[in-house]
Protein backbone atom coordinates (compact mmCIF):
# COMPACT_ATOMS: atom_id res chain seq x y z
CA UNK A 1 0.00 0.00 0.00
CA UNK A 2 1.38 3.43 -0.91
CA UNK A 3 1.73 6.16 1.73
CA UNK A 4 -0.97 8.19 -0.01
CA UNK A 5 -3.39 5.29 0.04
CA UNK A 6 -2.56 4.48 3.67
CA UNK A 7 -3.14 8.11 4.64
CA UNK A 8 -6.47 8.19 2.86
CA UNK A 9 -7.65 4.96 4.48
CA UNK A 10 -6.56 6.06 7.95
CA UNK A 11 -8.46 9.34 7.47
CA UNK A 12 -11.54 7.15 6.99
CA UNK A 13 -10.76 5.10 10.11
CA UNK A 14 -10.07 1.91 8.15
CA UNK A 15 -9.19 -0.86 10.65
CA UNK A 16 -7.48 -3.18 8.15
CA UNK A 17 -5.19 -0.40 7.01
CA UNK A 18 -4.38 0.45 10.62
CA UNK A 19 -3.66 -3.19 11.45
CA UNK A 20 -1.23 -3.27 8.55
CA UNK A 21 0.82 -0.22 9.55
CA UNK A 22 0.64 -1.19 13.23
CA UNK A 23 1.94 -4.69 12.48
CA UNK A 24 4.72 -3.32 10.33
CA UNK A 25 6.01 -0.63 12.69
CA UNK A 26 5.03 -1.41 16.28
CA UNK A 27 7.97 -3.69 17.25
CA UNK A 28 10.48 -1.14 15.93
CA UNK A 29 8.68 1.75 17.64
CA UNK A 30 8.84 -0.02 20.99
CA UNK A 31 12.55 -0.74 20.52
CA UNK A 32 13.29 2.87 19.60
CA UNK A 33 11.24 4.18 22.53
CA UNK A 34 12.99 1.77 24.92
CA UNK A 35 16.38 3.05 23.79
CA UNK A 36 15.29 6.68 24.21
CA UNK A 37 13.49 6.39 27.55
CA UNK A 38 15.49 3.60 29.15
CA UNK A 39 12.34 1.78 30.24
CA UNK A 40 10.24 -0.81 28.46
CA UNK A 41 7.11 0.17 30.42
CA UNK A 42 7.49 3.86 29.58
CA UNK A 43 8.28 2.87 25.99
CA UNK A 44 4.96 1.05 25.65
CA UNK A 45 3.08 4.10 26.91
CA UNK A 46 4.95 6.43 24.57
CA UNK A 47 4.30 4.09 21.65
CA UNK A 48 0.58 4.06 22.47
CA UNK A 49 0.54 7.88 22.62
CA UNK A 50 2.31 7.94 19.27
CA UNK A 51 -0.34 5.79 17.62
CA UNK A 52 -3.10 7.96 19.11
CA UNK A 53 -1.36 11.02 17.65
CA UNK A 54 -1.01 9.28 14.29
CA UNK A 55 -4.69 8.35 14.18
CA UNK A 56 -6.00 11.74 15.28
CA UNK A 57 -3.46 13.76 13.30
CA UNK A 58 -3.05 11.77 10.10
CA UNK A 59 -4.24 14.79 8.06
CA UNK A 60 -1.05 16.53 9.10
CA UNK A 61 1.06 14.00 7.21
CA UNK A 62 1.99 16.00 4.12
CA UNK A 63 4.15 13.47 2.33
CA UNK A 64 7.38 15.41 2.75
CA UNK A 65 9.00 12.34 4.25
CA UNK A 66 7.82 8.75 4.08
CA UNK A 67 4.90 7.90 6.36
CA UNK A 68 7.19 5.53 8.25
CA UNK A 69 9.73 8.29 8.96
CA UNK A 70 6.92 10.61 10.00
CA UNK A 71 5.68 8.10 12.58
CA UNK A 72 9.20 7.45 13.87
CA UNK A 73 9.80 11.21 14.21
CA UNK A 74 6.60 11.63 16.28
CA UNK A 75 7.71 8.80 18.53
CA UNK A 76 11.24 10.16 18.97
CA UNK A 77 9.85 13.58 20.00
CA UNK A 78 7.43 12.10 22.50
CA UNK A 79 10.06 9.76 23.93
CA UNK A 80 12.55 12.60 24.41
CA UNK A 81 9.95 14.81 26.08
CA UNK A 82 8.95 11.98 28.36
CA UNK A 83 12.55 11.15 29.26
CA UNK A 84 13.15 14.80 30.17
CA UNK A 85 10.04 14.89 32.36
CA UNK A 86 11.19 11.81 34.21
CA UNK A 87 14.61 13.34 34.71
CA UNK A 88 16.31 10.75 32.57
CA UNK A 89 19.00 11.93 30.27
CA UNK A 90 18.30 10.46 26.88
CA UNK A 91 20.95 8.81 24.82
CA UNK A 92 24.45 9.90 25.62
CA UNK A 93 27.44 9.09 23.49
CA UNK A 94 29.65 8.02 26.37
CA UNK A 95 26.83 5.92 27.76
CA UNK A 96 26.23 4.08 24.51
CA UNK A 97 29.86 3.45 23.73
CA UNK A 98 30.32 2.04 27.20
CA UNK A 99 27.28 -0.15 26.80
CA UNK A 100 28.67 -1.41 23.51
CA UNK A 101 32.09 -2.40 24.66
CA UNK A 102 31.22 -5.58 26.46
CA UNK A 103 33.12 -8.82 26.64
CA UNK A 104 32.56 -9.80 23.03
CA UNK A 105 34.33 -6.68 21.80
CA UNK A 106 37.29 -6.36 24.06
CA UNK A 107 38.31 -9.50 25.86
CA UNK A 108 38.91 -11.80 22.91
CA UNK A 109 42.55 -12.61 22.25
CA UNK A 110 43.88 -11.01 19.11
CA UNK A 111 42.98 -13.13 16.11
CA UNK A 112 45.84 -11.88 13.92
CA UNK A 113 49.62 -12.16 13.93
CA UNK A 114 51.94 -9.19 13.52
CA UNK A 115 51.68 -9.22 9.74
CA UNK A 116 47.86 -9.08 9.94
CA UNK A 117 47.20 -12.73 9.02
CA UNK A 118 44.73 -14.97 10.81
CA UNK A 119 46.34 -16.90 13.66
CA UNK A 120 43.65 -19.53 13.34
CA UNK A 121 41.39 -19.86 10.33
CA UNK A 122 37.74 -18.82 10.79
CA UNK A 123 35.41 -21.79 10.68
CA UNK A 124 33.75 -22.50 7.35
CA UNK A 125 30.01 -22.29 7.94
CA UNK A 126 27.55 -24.44 6.08
CA UNK A 127 24.53 -22.58 4.78
CA UNK A 128 22.51 -21.56 7.86
CA UNK A 129 18.80 -21.24 7.24
CA UNK A 130 16.70 -19.65 10.02
CA UNK A 131 15.25 -23.10 10.79
CA UNK A 132 18.52 -24.95 10.95
CA UNK A 133 19.31 -26.44 14.36
CA UNK A 134 22.62 -25.47 15.98
CA UNK A 135 23.50 -26.72 19.46
CA UNK A 136 19.90 -27.81 20.02
CA UNK A 137 18.23 -24.56 18.96
CA UNK A 138 17.05 -23.15 15.67
CA UNK A 139 19.19 -20.39 14.21
CA UNK A 140 16.40 -17.79 14.47
CA UNK A 141 16.03 -18.53 18.20
CA UNK A 142 19.75 -18.02 18.73
CA UNK A 143 19.56 -14.72 16.85
CA UNK A 144 16.45 -13.61 18.75
CA UNK A 145 18.09 -14.25 22.11
CA UNK A 146 21.33 -12.63 21.00
CA UNK A 147 19.42 -9.48 19.98
CA UNK A 148 17.58 -9.37 23.31
CA UNK A 149 20.90 -9.52 25.15
CA UNK A 150 22.25 -6.42 23.35
CA UNK A 151 22.19 -2.94 24.93
CA UNK A 152 18.85 -1.28 24.09
CA UNK A 153 20.57 1.30 21.91
CA UNK A 154 22.12 -1.41 19.73
CA UNK A 155 18.80 -3.24 19.52
CA UNK A 156 17.11 -0.08 18.25
CA UNK A 157 19.86 0.59 15.70
CA UNK A 158 19.86 -2.99 14.44
CA UNK A 159 16.11 -2.87 14.07
CA UNK A 160 15.95 0.50 12.30
CA UNK A 161 18.70 -0.48 9.86
CA UNK A 162 18.04 -4.16 9.22
CA UNK A 163 14.27 -4.29 9.58
CA UNK A 164 13.14 -0.78 8.62
CA UNK A 165 15.95 -0.15 6.12
CA UNK A 166 16.57 3.38 7.37
CA UNK A 167 19.88 5.02 6.42
CA UNK A 168 22.50 5.57 9.13
CA UNK A 169 21.89 9.34 8.91
CA UNK A 170 18.13 8.92 9.53
CA UNK A 171 18.78 6.60 12.48
CA UNK A 172 21.29 9.11 13.86
CA UNK A 173 18.70 11.90 13.77
CA UNK A 174 16.08 9.79 15.54
CA UNK A 175 18.48 8.75 18.29
CA UNK A 176 20.30 12.06 18.59
CA UNK A 177 23.74 10.53 18.01
CA UNK A 178 26.24 10.85 15.15
CA UNK A 179 26.01 8.66 12.01
CA UNK A 180 29.51 7.42 12.77
CA UNK A 181 28.38 6.20 16.16
CA UNK A 182 25.38 4.50 14.55
CA UNK A 183 27.74 2.49 12.34
CA UNK A 184 30.04 1.59 15.23
CA UNK A 185 27.12 0.35 17.34
CA UNK A 186 25.68 -1.53 14.37
CA UNK A 187 29.02 -3.26 13.78
CA UNK A 188 29.31 -4.26 17.42
CA UNK A 189 25.80 -5.62 17.51
CA UNK A 190 26.23 -7.75 14.39
CA UNK A 191 29.68 -8.94 15.45
CA UNK A 192 28.29 -10.21 18.75
CA UNK A 193 25.56 -12.09 16.97
CA UNK A 194 28.05 -13.56 14.48
CA UNK A 195 30.18 -14.84 17.35
CA UNK A 196 27.21 -16.48 19.02
CA UNK A 197 26.26 -18.23 15.79
CA UNK A 198 29.88 -19.30 15.38
CA UNK A 199 30.02 -20.65 18.92
CA UNK A 200 26.71 -22.45 18.52
CA UNK A 201 28.25 -24.36 15.63
CA UNK A 202 31.43 -25.34 17.44
CA UNK A 203 29.62 -26.32 20.65
CA UNK A 204 29.12 -30.02 19.85
CA UNK A 205 32.88 -30.28 19.26
CA UNK A 206 33.96 -28.63 22.49
CA UNK A 207 33.10 -24.93 22.19
CA UNK A 208 36.18 -23.15 20.88
CA UNK A 209 36.35 -19.37 20.79
CA UNK A 210 35.16 -17.43 17.79
CA UNK A 211 37.75 -15.47 15.87
CA UNK A 212 37.12 -11.96 14.63
CA UNK A 213 38.66 -8.52 14.55
CA UNK A 214 38.31 -6.20 17.52
CA UNK A 215 35.98 -3.32 16.96
Amino acid sequence: MSDTEMRQRLVQGDEDAFAEIFGALNPSLIRLATALTGSRAVAEEVTQETWLAVISGIERFAGKSSLKNWVFAILANKARTRARQEGRTTVRLDHTSKAGSGDADTTDPDSFDDSGRWREPPMLWDEITPERTLAGRQAWEIVTDAIKALPTMQQAILDLVQRENLAAAEVATLLGISPGNVRIQLHRARERIRRQLDQAQTEPHGGQKSHGCKK
Partner: peptide
Protein backbone atom coordinates in the same frame (compact mmCIF):
# COMPACT_ATOMS: atom_id res chain seq x y z
CA UNK B 1 25.11 -15.08 6.59
CA UNK B 2 24.82 -13.27 9.94
CA UNK B 3 23.36 -10.20 8.25
CA UNK B 4 20.84 -12.33 6.33
CA UNK B 5 19.80 -14.21 9.49
CA UNK B 6 19.33 -10.97 11.44
CA UNK B 7 17.19 -9.55 8.64
CA UNK B 8 14.94 -12.57 8.39
CA UNK B 9 14.63 -12.90 12.18
CA UNK B 10 13.63 -9.24 12.56
CA UNK B 11 11.27 -9.43 9.58
CA UNK B 12 9.34 -12.27 11.23
CA UNK B 13 8.80 -10.43 14.50
CA UNK B 14 5.14 -10.26 15.27
CA UNK B 15 3.51 -7.14 16.63
CA UNK B 16 1.20 -7.56 19.61
CA UNK B 17 -2.51 -7.23 18.88
CA UNK B 18 -3.92 -3.74 18.43
CA UNK B 19 -4.98 -2.16 21.74
CA UNK B 20 -8.74 -1.46 22.09
CA UNK B 21 -7.93 2.16 22.96
CA UNK B 22 -6.45 2.59 19.49
CA UNK B 23 -9.41 0.90 17.82
CA UNK B 24 -11.75 3.24 19.69
CA UNK B 25 -9.77 6.24 18.49
CA UNK B 26 -9.98 4.88 14.96
Amino acid sequence: QTSRLIKSTLAHQKASSVDPVLLAEL
